[in-house]
Each structure stands twice: as structure tokens, then as C-alpha cells.
């Protein structure tokens, strides 16, 4: 079985980004763009890496977790990730970088545009959903578990 080629995956993603009239940069196998979200941590940055048969979307928070808040952020994202269907939050414990990862496996089958949209947009949606409470954890000392529950009840 032959996987969808990397150029074909690039074309699928490029078509979607253009359909949204988003301004992006393209380099090698990666698309990058900035996006405002309705959250205190706006804006976010997207990086979409295209490979044979798949692409991975990383959505980066503008704010890193300071060292003294990293454990609390880890508790928050662990609570958020439990039960999450599509993708997950990641934390780099070395420098506090916070991002959302979404993977789309295509195999040898071209996806429908709705699925591409979900895979690309999910990080934006998750930072919109969890962003304010994530900031409350980092800057206001909010309890991580309670903050996550509040984000999920909104």
C-alpha cells in the first residue's frame, strides 16, 4: 500500500488554509501562522508539519509556564487530557512551553475537508476553551483541578 505523498499532504493542508483566507508561511514541509483566540492567552501560533501519509498540528501558547508554576500546569493539562478525544496538551518541563498537539493519519486515503478542518482547528478551540483557566493557574494561583473543571463547565 502506498501512503499519500508528502507533497499531496501539503496540498490538502494548503487548500484548507487558503479556504479560510488565513495568512501563513510555508517552508520545506511546514506551515506556520498566528491566530487570535478569544482568551486571555491570545494569540497562539500554529505549526503544521506534513509528512508522507500524515500531518501533525501544534498550537503553541504565547505564554510559557514559569518554573515555579510548572507542576501546577502539569496537573492542569493532565486533568484536561483525561478523556480528551482528539489530541492533547503537552508541556515541555524543561522550559515550560505549552502546546496542543493534533495528529491526522491519512494512509493512502484523501481526507474530506471537514476532517482536515477538525485536525487543524482543534488546538485553537482547546486554547479558547482552557486558556483563561490556564492563565488563572499560572498567574492567579488557581487550583489546577478546580480550574480545569471550570474550563470544562463553560
Amino acid at each position: 500500500m502506498s501512503l499519500i505523498s508528502q507533497p499531496a499532504v501539503m496540498a490538502v493542508v494548503r487548500d484548507y488554509l487558503n479556504s479560510q483566507s488565513w495568512h501563513f508561511q510555508e517552508e520545506d514541509k511546514t506551515f506556520t501562522l498566528g491566530m487570535n483566540v478569544k482568551s486571555k492567552l491570545t494569540p497562539v501560533r500554529l505549526r503544521i508539519i506534513c509528512e508522507e501519509g500524515k500531518f501533525v498540528t501544534y498550537t503553541y501558547s504565547n505564554i510559557n509556564a514559569p518554573e515555579d508554576m510548572r507542576f501546577a500546569v502539569m496537573q492542569f493539562i493532565t486533568a484536561a487530557n483525561y478523556g480528551m478525544r482528539r489530541g492533547n496538551f503537552e508541556l515541555d518541563q524543561r522550559d515550560g512551553e505549552i502546546r496542543y498537539k493534533s495528529f491526522m493519519g491519512l494512509g493512502d486515503t484523501l481526507p474530506d475537508v471537514d476532517e482536515v478542518e477538525k485536525a487543524v482547528d482543534i488546538g485553537i478551540i482547546m486554547f479558547r476553551r482552557y486558556g483563561d483557566e490556564l492563565m488563572n493557574v499560572i498567574f492567579a494561583g488557581a487550583d489546577p483541578i478546580e480550574a480545569c473543571k471550570r474550563a470544562e463547565s463553560n
Partner: peptide
């Protein structure tokens, strides 16, 4: 990704395949 339920310490690995109306490849 790995997940952990902080209430009881359950650990699991999750993967997910979404394909909409197009049947997924066997791969």
C-alpha cells in the same frame, strides 16, 4: 498520548481515528 486519572491513578494510552464519511485505510 498517555493519560492519567488523578483521582485514582489509572494510567492509559489513547489513540483516535476520525474519518468522517470516508472509510479509513486499513493502514
Amino acid at each position: 498520548n498517555f493519560e492519567m486519572d488523578q483521582n485514582d491513578g489509572e494510567i492509559r494510552y489513547k489513540d483516535f481515528l476520525s474519518f468522517g464519511e470516508v472509510a479509513p485505510s486499513s493502514h
